[in-house]
Design a protein around this nucleic acid. Structure first.
Ligand SMILES: [Mn+2]
Ligand SMILES: [Mn+2]
Ligand SMILES: [Zn+2]
Ligand SMILES: [Zn+2]
Lengths: 140, 140
DNA sequence: TAGATTATTGATACCAAGTATCAATTACAC
DNA sequence: GTGTAATTGATACTTGGTATCAATAATCTA
């Protein structure tokens, strides 16, 4: 979906400078499928400072180039986002492949929740875990 | 819901030893409402080693005395659990008060998800955020 | 009630994610 | 080409968490 050029364009649109460090991080990130940790990126761009890698990951997340994927143990990974709107993930616990989902909380459920609790609902986390077709046939 | 005696009994039932460190952590934990961090506990039991505090928190989580609460930024907190079955949380982003919820994913949605993705669904995270009645009237 | 046994402790050293600081550098607009 | 503001990266710090391991102590049993 994204390539280096399109991300560079996005950066320029945001008024951000195109630096070798940013280009290196973006290239490293675009090279990966599934989800990855900051360390995965750090080890692929040893010439870029640690803080800059973190800063760039954060930038890219805010620009919706990356999204954060919540794993079942509560840890967070990153992934190149296929879609820029609100969505959730289904993650294979065995191979890290990720599906981005249309499914969200039923608005009726949200209303009911607000009504019964008195809370004004502002947000939610919703992430699914399972085993993908490939991984299930591997272990069969 | 829980008191020191009942947790001690639970520990004994699990064949675990009753030690001063464990008692101190349990007492500190039972003293708190809402959600709390490991640091909150650490600072209340400075006489107990760091590793032991972590170990005890983990134990209590596995025994369903504590549950982990996911915040909107992706960080995890702990809380004394009111219920021992599968459940989710609604957290006030302003005062840390937590509601434990009956609401869960509609089984129909899960089936649909499994069917359309080919994944075998094994688990999920579902946590809600909002502002409780008290906090909303405070800022009004 | 004294051992023996085994779980538990806590000091220490790690690891990973992330932030704060700040002087040095550099991308880019003019 | 130059000025300036954005960016970098070294460093140090924070928080959550795990691994190691010798020393200690809770409990079982005789
Ligand atoms: Mn996504
Ligand atoms: Mn709970
Ligand atoms: Zn898989
Ligand atoms: Zn509140």
């Amino acid at each position: 979906m994204y390539n280096l050029q399109s991300v560079v364009q996005r950066l320029e649109e945001e008024g951000l400078r195109i630096t070798p460090s940013r280009l290196a991080v973006v290239a490293a990130v675009l090279d990966l499928s599934g989800h990855f940790s900051v360390d995965d990126i750090l080890s692929q761009v040893p010439e870029v400072g640690r803080a800059t890698v973190f800063r760039t990951m954060k930038l890219l997340s805010e620009m919706d180039v990356l999204c954060r994927v919540l794993l079942d143990d509560g840890s967070l990974r990153y992934r190149v986002s296929q879609r820029q709107d609100h969505h959730h993930h289904l993650v294979c616990v065995s191979c890290a492949s990720v599906q981005e989902l249309d499914a969200c909380i039923d608005p009726e459920v949200l209303n009911e929740l607000a009504r019964t609790t008195g809370y004004e609902i502002e947000g939610h986390w919703l992430e699914f875990f399972g085993r993908c077709t490939a991984c299930r046939s591997d272990s069969a």
